[in-house]
Design a protein around this nucleic acid. Structure first.
Lengths: 114, 114
DNA sequence: TTAGCATATTCGCATATGCTGATGAGAGAT
DNA sequence: ATCTCTCATCAGCATATGCGAATATGCTAA
């Protein structure tokens, strides 16, 4: 097998490995609609801050997300340039618009002053 | 979160987890062009028979492949109905047609009488 | 500067994964 | 029935992964 082919396969496999987790799929689906800071993602997914941050690190490692710092907050959004099929994949997931509408009602949202 | 949403995410994540391995991507790419028996896949990927069989079991577990028995041989092919985007994903992988043309030249191909 | 909040990183643990080697199950040939 | 070939499964191991707890870093405001 050609070395170039092998490395292409490895890179694609790495991307799918990152997609192979329900929490990361959920995060991608959310930030494909609008950028969100880590505390919002943490609240919506109902996971620990550490866990959310680790998932975001994995998404960063394959360049699937863009980040923008604003004061203490880091806003994440989908990087559609990294993997052309990513948008179509995310569109095949269930709708998350209800969750996005409810951001203000989240229990610990007061800790996250947007 | 809705339970149905969660199970959908889990199912999608499971599919991507299966896609998240270079050998399995390679197998899928090969059998998306033509059906192959296990010994051919083993030869092309240059992995052990046990390893190939285990990868095929993973692909079967999420219904990504179809199998057809013919005497001792079991021929695997892509199941395009399981995951609508699978064909597009596989088309984004490097070309495998050269490997398919060389099946007859493989070292231990005599053990696999097509 | 200090305090407080948002985020990242490290550590440790339980579980999952990929692989090899050995064994088992089916199907044909003799 | 016996042998051989194809394929599946099991056992065992090294490594990877997902998570919580603790800690570190970075920013703002007082």
């Amino acid at each position: 097998m050609h070395p170039q082919y092998r490395s292409d396969l490895l890179k694609m496999a790495e991307i799918f490995k990152v997609l192979g987790d329900p929490n990361r799929l959920h995060i991608l689906s959310l930030i494909s609609h609008q950028e969100l800071c880590v505390c919002e993602i943490t609240s919506i997914l109902n996971i620990s801050q550490s866990n959310a941050s680790q998932h975001l690190a994995r998404l960063r490692s394959v360049d699937l997300v863009k980040e923008r710092r604003n004061a203490q907050w880091i806003y994440y959004s989908l990087n559609q340039d990294a993997f052309p099929l990513i948008s179509e994949i995310l569109q095949s997931l269930p709708d998350v618009s209800i969750e996005l509408k409810k951001i203000e009602d989240l229990p610990n949202h007061q800790k996250c002053k947007i």
